[in-house]
Amino acid sequence: MLKIFELIGRYFILMGKVFSRPEKASIYRRRIIYEMESLGLDSIGLTAIISVFIGAVITLQMCINLDSPFIPRSLVGYATRETMILEFSSTVVALILAGKVGSSIASEIGTMRITEQIDALEIMGVNSASYLILPKIVAGVVFFPFLTILSILIGILGGWMIAYLTGIMIPADYVEGLLMDFRPYSITYSLIKTAVFAYIITSISAFYGYYAKGNSLEVGAASTRAVVVSSVVIMIFNLMLTQILLI
């Protein structure tokens, strides 16, 4: 138990370092663009593939399970939209990205630690925590919401495609459901969640990498731990944010 408090304490000390004494703005600009590319753009493919399949499966499931004359068919479109917006495109995508982006951040920074690249930055008088971690956090918090929007759109498209291709329901009913009872606030809620999850993934993974020591085995272990811990923290925050934002 004491260990957990110590860990959390160290995490906040590191965050203090990340947000204090930043380096020149011009240096960050370049690094943020670089990180957006490596953390964000490179995740578009994975997000799109998973979203199109999930959208299709949700639609299929709804068609099969809501097969009753009392329930209008358009409800399937509505349900697909709401599932994508409320949970899948924020929370599930975040969990997937925790695996992909989180492990890459932790192993990149961990390797820099054990090969003394972080010491080399420190010796140049660079605030290494800020120089390495801040651009990743900013890139994640700015870019992941776009991934969420993309995932919502592609998921909904996936549902429509399955309706169209299999004929399990009339695509026009699906579209009617999509337009039913739409609350823009759901999108806001989803994007706020994503931004918070992006912060959790990038900062926790960076934390485990930054304090890695020893050899490549331990960098591997740190990167696994980063993924596990960010995933659990995401689930906890998902619950809390839903409480705060929707009720």
Partner: peptide, 22 residues
């Protein structure tokens, strides 16, 4: 440093230039 500790994600030129940038 013992292993050189060049920044892996930067080219030779960027590595040597970094202190000047800073």
């Amino acid at each position: 440093f013992q292993g050189g500790a060049l920044l892996d994600s930067s080219s030779v030129e960027e590595n040597v230039k970094l202190p000047l940038d800073l």
